[in-house]
Design a protein around this nucleic acid. Structure first.
Length: 194
DNA sequence: CGGAAGATTTCT
DNA sequence: GAAATCTTCCGA
């Protein structure tokens, strides 16, 4: 079952935790990709120094963050990698959840081709790797994941043990424990030792 | 209009 | 540990 808009219409931290164990699905003309979400990060809005909307900014890029919860926010990081986020909370409030790692379930052959590697562990264990493996890019920016039939997130009862850790790859806002991952899953991009 | 920074990945 | 790579954003 595809997750409905109400799922995303909650605080980004809650959505980030609840997304663990859910299934990202991308249906293309070549086949279907599926992967279990095992790592996420929450960006909690205009008061978050690590958010693109920090200080209530509205720019050409971050305008997507102000759309309906469930909207996909895809942008290019470091000129090399697309990152996939899902808008959370409510329309007009710029919070989102970054999908950081997946456990590949379906379409693994296509992922290997897209990523130019045969190592399954290296297909989707990072936010930029996910988009390359699944064929997701700027064309998917602004898509409503709660309403379309080719890119969405499927429900699942499986959750596992959730670990809270500092977000990674950012300069400011590291003090918040807003990265969540499934304990023991080998596809988590970076494990934190406390 | 120029320059710096960036929610990463990959190779050395 | 550093380069690759390029769009976006901000200050002048």
């Amino acid at each position: 079952m595809r997750l409905p808009r109400v799922f995303y219409a909650r605080e980004s931290k809650i959505v980030a935790k609840d997304l663990l164990g859910k299934i990202l699905v991308h249906k293309t003309s070549e086949g279907i990709y599926k992967g279990k979400i095992v790592e996420t990060e929450a960006y909690f809005g205009w008061a978050d120094p690590a958010s693109h909307a920090y200080g209530k900014k509205i720019t050409k890029r971050n305008i997507i963050l102000y759309k309906n919860p469930g909207t996909a926010y895809v942008y290019l990081a470091y000129g090399t990698n697309w990152l996939l986020n899902v808008v959370a909370e409510k329309k007009g409030f710029p919070s989102a959840v970054l999908i950081r790692a997946l456990e590949p379930l379906k379409g693994i052959g296509m992922m290997k081709r897209n990523r130019c590697t045969k190592e399954i562990i290296n297909l989707t264990n990072g936010p930029g790797k996910i988009t390359e493996a699944f064929g997701i890019d700027i064309n998917h920016n602004g898509l409503d994941l709660s309403e379309n039939d080719f890119l969405f997130i499927e429900n699942s009862e499986e959750t596992g043990i959730i670990v809270e850790a500092p977000r990674v790859g950012i300069r400011k806002g590291k003090e918040h424990l807003l990265r969540f991952y499934t304990k023991g899953n080998k596809f988590v991009s970076k494990i934190t030792t406390f």
